[in-house]
Structure formats: structure tokens, C-alpha cells
Amino acid sequence: MKPQPVALKVLNVVSVLLFLAALGMVFLYAPLEETMNYVQKIFYFHVANAWVGMLGFIAAAVAGVVYLVKHDQKWDIIELAAVEISLIFFITTIITGSIWARPVWNTWWTWDTRLTTATILEMIYIAYLLLRQGIEDPDRRARFGAVYTIIGAISVPITFLSIRIVSRTIHPVVIGATNGTATGSFNMAPQMLFTMFFALFTFSAIFVTLFWHRIRLGQLAQQVEQLKLEEF
């Protein structure tokens, strides 16, 4: 495995520092929310994790398309890395969303649009990983992975819209509510908004760093697999 390039080493440090800074902002800078008290502070990292999940989702879909066009294994490695990272960050999003929901709405789970779609997305990711696991030929594995990524990527937005259409007809959306609604709205002070954007920025940096590391892992794995295929 090639040694870490300087840029990556710098990113490592930057990511850690930004993460600590973001924590600091959440606990020391952002004001306390009126109705929910401390538990609202989950919001900042929850949204940031969801954002990173989205980035990974888009990266995976793009990598899938590019692989089918170019047939370069490199894009398959990128696609797998993106799926894995998106999987991890969406799991965090879902779990913390549930933890936040419990004290505020007295329920561990709400079948609201975003949570449900995120869960379905996780199922698609797991299916993707199981699909790859069942194929030994690297070329076929890459092709099928790309195809399933594309099919999954198309279906998720449609799923999101479908669930939203259903909820709209049951619960008319109340815009700008100050009491807790299903979408968990609360009044955001400017410091809260700034903290949120800083968290988004932090996690974007973390995403790039982790993505890069995971791609390196993928390249090493490809090397090992190629050797094994040659020998056996």
C-alpha cells in the first residue's frame, strides 16, 4: 500500500480539528432551545450525518454510471467505498433520529418520510453488499454492482415522493410550526443556523477523508485479489 500522500495526512489533522471545533460550537456556542432543552443539540450532528450520507449516495450512483461507461475498475472501488460510507453515516442518522424522537414525541420510531426512506436506503445498501458477496468474478461483480446502484438510486427519490404523497393526504403539512410537528421544526436562532452550517462543513471534510481512506483500502484489496486470481 502506498504511503499516505501529504494531502491526506493534512486532511486527517484538519478533520479531527474541525470535529473538535464543531463539538465545541454545539455545546458552548449554540444557545439552548426553548421547548426541547439539551436533546435538541443532537440536531446539528444528525443533519450533518444525513448530509454526508446523501453525498455518499450521489457519489455511488455517479460512480456506477461512470463504471458502466468506462469499464475502469477504479470506479468500482469508488462506488463500493461510497456505499459503505453512506451506509455508516445513515445508520448514525437513523439511530440518533430515533433517540431524539423518544423524549420529544414519546416514541422510538415515526414512520415519517425521511426516516422511512433512510431505512429503505439502508436495506438497498445491504442488498448491494450481499449481491457483491455472491459473485466471485470481479468484472461481473462490478457490472452488477453498478447496475444495482443505478436501479437503487432511481428508486429512492421515487420512494421518498411516494411516502410524502401518502403523508400529505393524511397529515396536511403545517408550515413554520413552533410546536413540535412530525418534521421536528423549532425556531432556529442565528447562532443555531451557523452551528449547523459549520457542522455540515466539518462532516463534509470528514467525508472526503474517510472516502479517500476507504478507496485506498479498496485499491489494496484489489491488488490482493488479483494476485489470488493469478495464482489459483
Binding site: 426553548e34 421547548t35 426541547m36 432543552n37 439539551y38 436533546v39 443539540k41 443532537i42 450532528f45 444528525h46 450525518n49 455508516i88 445508520i91 448514525t92 439511530i95 440518533t96 433517540i99 431524539w100 423518544r102 423524549p103 420529544v104 470528514i206 474517510l210
Partner: peptide, 27 residues
């Protein structure tokens, strides 16, 4: 306003997850 002792408990649980899951992944 949600009670302090309840609120902080859940917040800490949430932040444990924020730290633990990426840490496990890194490991």
C-alpha cells in the same frame, strides 16, 4: 420545556452514537 435530567440523558446517548459509530468504522 422538557425536563433537564431527561433531556441531557438522551443528548448524551445521541452523542455517544455520533462518536462510537464512526470510531468503530475507523477501527
Amino acid at each position: 420545556m422538557l425536563e433537564y435530567s431527561v433531556s441531557i440523558k438522551y443528548m448524551l446517548a445521541g452523542y455517544t452514537v455520533f462518536l462510537a459509530v464512526p470510531a468503530v468504522y475507523l477501527i
